[in-house]
């Protein structure tokens, strides 16, 4: 079973049930957000630190480590 999401315009496959962070890490991505000009990715992994937030299907501020990836999810980077 696999799940496919779009990230940065690219299709990425993960395992069914993985979080968005799990899918991105599985595809070798380690960072997906800019903070003060520097790359950030997952840090606390349990929904506390907000470092891993992404835009999912147009909705901002979704914690990648908490949201289970669904087939067809469009995931975009955030920057501030």
């Amino acid at each position: 079973m696999s799940v496919r999401i779009r990230f940065d315009g690219e299709e990425i496959a993960g395992r069914d049930g993985q979080t968005i962070a799990g899918v991105l890490l599985g595809a070798g991505r380690r960072s997906w957000r800019l903070a003060g000009g520097a790359e950030r990715g997952v840090f606390c992994g349990i929904g506390v630190c907000q470092d891993c937030v992404v835009t999912v299907n147009g909705i901002e501020n979704v914690r990648a480590c908490q949201r289970t990836a669904l087939e067809g999810d469009v995931v975009e980077r955030e920057a501030r």
């Binding site: 395992r15 799990g22 960072s31 790359e39 990715g41 997952v42």
Partner: peptide, 20 residues
């Protein structure tokens, strides 16, 4: 703050929850 630095709990959670 470099990518690749995570908390111990994150390592545990990702391994358990995501197999990652």
């Amino acid at each position: 703050t470099l990518p690749g630095v995570i908390t111990a709990g994150a390592a545990q959670a990702l391994a358990k929850r995501d197999g990652a």
